[in-house]
């Protein structure tokens, strides 16, 4: 058990280290001048270029920059912003080139928006997906079943940003049925209500997958001997389906949920962009347009950490649920 967890944790740490080094090399130590590259061709003044160079420390050798960068992540460091030194506590992700805000802070204020959207999306795709899937499995072979499967297949095959965009245009812009996104500072009520529209469409898109998983799993389970036994004992159909079959049928679906949870955090990226939700994804896209290097790097690092940690948690959770995992 402990050995398994240790092995998985080691893997996670090695992945994170490589991601760190790779991002650093990509952004800082390539063949061209990152300050020039990040300065932007039109807005670049010599003053700005100099400022970026100094705050990046690209005038020093790569190895030195490298240690400085990791020192910043581990214990914090001082960074020159617009000529003046500023302390950046650990884990230091630097300061935005454009606004001068500390990247860590900027990400921390936006994280709840992304997390809330992901949670609401999950609530929607689990309820809609599983209930529809179970319904289709119980009416297997009927027109309803074929309709559900066909619809989920078609709906799930269309690129999601197209569906998201059309949904946004029709429900929040052209016919404002659903409220638009409001910042948390405008009150928690409007904020929550504003997240409903993006959560609905993202949830429905994810649900198309869960309908099919839940249906297939339920069809499988309903053909099991113990279900037949339960039926032959005279237990009501409701009880057979929901007490006996559903629990067993859901276990593979839960596995997929675990796999999806990490992906969901970046799955919200496009949705945030479309609906103007001020989350990590939208922030990353904006900073890309502004060539705001520290923010881009910070987001990529945080995104990787989230995915790796989530995967680790899911894997360890499995090793508790299913002892066979540990042996592999």
């Amino acid at each position: 058990m402990l050995i398994y967890i240790a092995r998985r944790a080691l893997m996670a740490v090695s992945v994170l280290l490589v991601v760190l080094v790779a991002t650093f090399l990509l952004f800082f130590a390539g063949p061209s001048d990152p300050a020039q590259a990040m300065c932007g061709e039109l807005r670049c003044t010599p003053q700005r270029l100099e400022d970026i160079r100094r705050s990046l420390g690209t005038d020093r050798p790569v190895a030195e920059q490298f240690t400085e960068y990791f020192k910043g992540l581990a214990v914090g460091r001082e960074i020159y912003v617009s000529g003046a030194p500023r302390t950046c506590s650990a884990p230091c992700l630097g300061f935005s080139f454009r606004t001068g805000i500390e990247v860590k802070e900027a990400l921390a204020t936006r994280f709840p928006n992304t997390a809330m959207l992901a949670l609401m999306t999950m609530a929607i795709f689990l309820t809609v997906g599983i209930s529809t899937g179970v319904l289709a499995a119980r009416r297997r072979g009927t027109a309803l079943d074929r309709g559900v499967v066909g619809f989920s297949q078609v709906f799930g095959s269309i690129p999601s940003y197209i569906l998201g965009l059309l949904f946004a245009l029709y429900t929040t812009v052209l016919y404002p049925i659903l409220p638009r996104y409001a910042n948390r500072s405008d009150g928690l009520g409007p904020w929550f209500v504003g997240l409903i529209a993006p959560a609905i469409i993202l949830g429905l898109i994810y649900a198309t997958g869960y309908v099919r998983y839940a249906r297939a799993s339920m069809v499988d389970t309903l053909n099991q001997d113990y279900v037949r036994t339960a039926r032959s004992k005279g237990i009501s159909e409701q009880k057979v389906v929901y007490r006996h079959a559903l629990r067993a049928a859901l276990s593979p679906v839960v596995t997929i949920l675990g796999l999806d949870m990490a992906g969901l955090l970046s799955g919200t990226l496009v949705t945030e962009h479309i609906f103007g939700v001020d989350g990590i994804g939208k922030f990353a896209i904006e900073s890309l347009r502004n060539d705001d290097l520290p923010i881009i790097m910070g987001t990529v690092l945080i995104g990787c950490v989230l995915v790796v940690v989530m995967n680790l948690i899911v894997d360890i959770a499995y090793s508790f649920l299913d002892p066979r995992v540990r042996l592999s």
Binding site: A12, V15, V19, L26, F27, G30, A37, L265, S266, L269, V270, G281, A284, I285, L288, D291, I296, M297, T299, V300, G303, C304, L306, V307, V308, N311
Partner: peptide
């Protein structure tokens, strides 16, 4: 383990 879309978004311009 990498967030695909985020990585690609960051990598393309770089």
């Amino acid at each position: 383990s990498l967030p695909f879309l985020l990585m690609v978004l960051a990598l393309v311009p770089i």
